[in-house]
Write a protein that binds this DNA or RNA. Structure first.
Lengths: 213, 213
DNA sequence: ATGCTTGGATAGTGGCACTGTCCAAGGAGG
DNA sequence: CCTCCTTGGACAGTGCCACTATCCAAGCAT
């Protein structure tokens, strides 16, 4: 298919697609003549993933580029590739390391990992963006005056552990290799809002039941 | 305390605080003279909440203003006030209503609510932003080619139901009324990244255990 | 009394995700 | 063959938004 058709099928405007091509979020089409290129289903799929990352996941373009580069890097093995893709994902503002709230948060999270027996997470430790983001957020909560230490975190962690197990089980559902990696990224980014909205709905439900409307 | 002190204690620059005052995210200080105003702990607390909303929660300033207005509205009862505050929170781009993927997503979510017995959620239905966001996201997933129907959603919903119950239980921990409402907002916004990061950490942990590094 | 600080108003900055314009090269119809 | 419309590419411009810099007159401190 050509650019115009890609645009129609995806619902993304031509200038925007050109922009994504320029930013290397989308691989170039197969050049047919000097002025024409041919796109296929993989482009359409990738384009939709890009939209999902940017619009739903609110991932900045530069970050999306890194994530997708990891997805495409054939030199990496499956697990690594998934990891690398997810690795590039989040970037909330980091606090200074010597901040007292940060120090406290770090030790709270570390104690949590010990308690749960998440040894791999402990080894990888501060390299993981998830870990760092968690510490930052806990520090913010504490600075706001809301106690958020190991005891508060533990029950939540146990719940999310079961969710994660379920996530991993579902992985085998996807057949193709590239699709699999893309699926992990999509699932990471798109299932997160799903989870959050389910939680809010459940909160509304239980709050209404307990306190009335 | 005066503006400079408020700035130092909060770590927010004076021009930014002035900006927040202008945007009515922060109530004006008690005017002492024509050129001086006095701020107190409630201002500091509110300022930190604003930062949390904007920086961690990525809530746009205009939305934050609405949320905080609901928090402050004494004419509303407690539950309503919390609801109104959370009500104003999210705003992911909505899809056209007649889109086939959206229709499918709507029915999938509705069936989910029936299955779970979330009757209040069903009544409030499409008024709730959580509901609408959930539908939009599910539609996006489907459009991307990832099946996300009632059977896929149910286990996640059950997990989040337990999380939400725990959330509601924790509510009683907070003593003051205004603080309580603020706490709900802070918890909604700040515990969301905590949950997500715990999930990612757990995923890394279990993925490593199952597939190796 | 004088020099520095304060709060308030207003205009400007920088980043980012697009979007509009132009152009030369094709391809399609007569 | 000629004309007209479309295509892909380059590049500058736009709009939004969260700040930030500048200026000013009125105090307060010494």
């Amino acid at each position: 298919m050509r650019l115009a058709e890609l645009s129609e099928l995806s619902g993304v405007s031509i200038p925007t697609i050109k922009y994504y091509l320029r930013e290397q979020l989308l691989p170039a089409g197969r050049r047919m003549t000097a002025t024409q290129a041919e796109y296929d289903d993989s482009h359409l799929r990738r384009l939709r993933l890009v939209r999902a990352l940017i619009q739903v996941g609110r991932v900045p373009v530069a970050t999306a580029r890194e994530v997708l580069a990891a997805v495409d890097d054939d030199s990496l093995g499956r697990t690594i590739r998934m990891g690398a893709a997810l690795w590039a994902l989040p970037q909330p503002p980091e606090a200074p390391e010597d901040d007292p709230a940060t120090v406290e948060a770090t030790s709270a999270v570390d104690r949590l990992l010990v308690e749960l027996g998440w040894d791999t997470a402990r080894e990888i430790g501060s390299l993981s963006p998830s870990y760092r983001t968690l510490v930052t957020t806990v520090a913010t909560l504490n600075r706001l005056g809301y106690t958020c230490g190991t005891p508060e975190l533990t029950p939540y962690a146990r719940h999310m552990e079961r969710v994660a197990e379920h996530d991993i089980d579902r992985l085998d559902t996807f057949p193709e290799e590239v699709e699999k990696v893309e699926a992990v990224v999509a699932a990471a980014v798109l299932y997160e809002p799903v989870l959050l909205m389910l939680r809010r709905l459940a909160q509304e439900e239980h709050s209404a039941r307990r306190f009335g409307l």
